[in-house]
Simulated assay, not measured.
Amino acid sequence: MQSSVIEMIYTHRFEVIEQWKNEMITIQENEFTKSSPQRVLTHINQEFADLIIGTLEMDEEEGRQHLRSFSERLIHSGWPLSYFTKGLQQFRRVLLSLMTTDNTIPSSKVFETFQETENWIDSIVNQMVDEYTGSWEHTLEIQKLALQELSAPLIPVFEHISVMPLIGTIDTERAKLIMENLLEGIIEHRSQVVLIDITGVPVVDTMVAHHIIQAAEAVRLVGAECILVGIRPEIAQTIVNLGIDLGKFPTKSTLRKGIESGLERTNRQIVNL
C-alpha cells in the first residue's frame, strides 16, 4: 500500500477508530452482541480496530498469524462471523470517506488508493471467512465422528445375546460402520445371536435392505445368527412392494419377541416366578 495512505490512516487513527465505533453501534443492535456487556463490546471493537490497522506494519505472514489467533479466540467464544464482516465493511466506508476529504492524497491517485484499500480490507474479510469456515468444518467433522461412534453400538443384553439398535437414515458410509461395529462386537461379547433393531429407521428401501442383508450374512460367517426386529407394518408393506427377499434370516415385529427367540436359540427361556 502507498506510504501516503498508511500515513493518512495513522495520522487520523483515533478519528477513524472513534467514527468506526459509532458505526458499529448499529450492528450491535441487530446481532447477538446486543445482550453482551458493553465493556466486552468496547474491548473487542478496540482490539479489532487495532488489529486491522496493525496489519499495515506487518508482513503478510505475520498479519495472517495475528488474524488467525484473533479469529480462533472469537470463534470459541461464540462471536458470529457476520459481526466482523459487517464491521470490516463499515471500516472500509470510514476510510473511503476520509480519503475523499483528506488533501494529502493527490486527485490523480484517488482511484488507485481506493483500489488498494479495497484489496487490503478484502484480504482481511477473506481470511476471517476462511478461518471461520475451517473451524466450523473441523467442529462438524469431530461431531460427525462422535455421532458415528454412537450411532451403531452393539449392546450385550444377555449372555451370548446382543442388540444393535439402528436409528435414522442408513447410507453407504454408515452401513460400513455398522458392519465393522457388528463384527467386532460379536467377537468381543462372544455373541451367538444378534438382534438388529430397525424400529428407528424411517425408510427401508432397496439399498437399506441390501446393507441389512449383507450385515446378516457377515454375522453368519463369523458363527452367529442374526434376527431382524422392529419391522413395522408400513415397513413390511414397503419390503413386499419392492420385492426384497429377507427370507434368509428370521424376522420379528418387536424387540421383545426377538429376545424371546434369541433365548430359545441359546436353550433358555423367560419364566414367571
Rank of each mutant, 00 (worst) to 15 (best):
E23N: 10
I25N: 10
I27N: 00
Q28F: 10
N30H: 14
F32R: 11
K34S: 10
S35Y: 08
P37Y: 02
I44F: 00
L51N: 02
M58W: 07
D59G: 11
E61N: 08
H66R: 13
L67E: 02
S69N: 11
E72Q: 14
R73H: 11
S82Q: 10
T85D: 02
F91Y: 15
L96S: 03
M99S: 04
T104R: 14
N119M: 11
N119K: 13
D122E: 13
S123K: 11
N126Q: 13
V129M: 10
K144A: 13
K144D: 11
L147S: 09
I155K: 04
P156E: 07
F158H: 08
L166Y: 07
E173G: 05
K176T: 11
E184Q: 12
E188T: 04
E188A: 04
G200H: 01
H211Q: 09
Q214I: 12
A215L: 05
A215Q: 03
G223E: 09
G223D: 09
I227W: 00
V229A: 07
I231W: 02
P233Q: 09
A236Q: 05
T238E: 10
I239Q: 07
L246A: 07
L246Q: 07
K248G: 15
T251L: 05
K252A: 08
T254E: 08
R256M: 11
N272D: 11
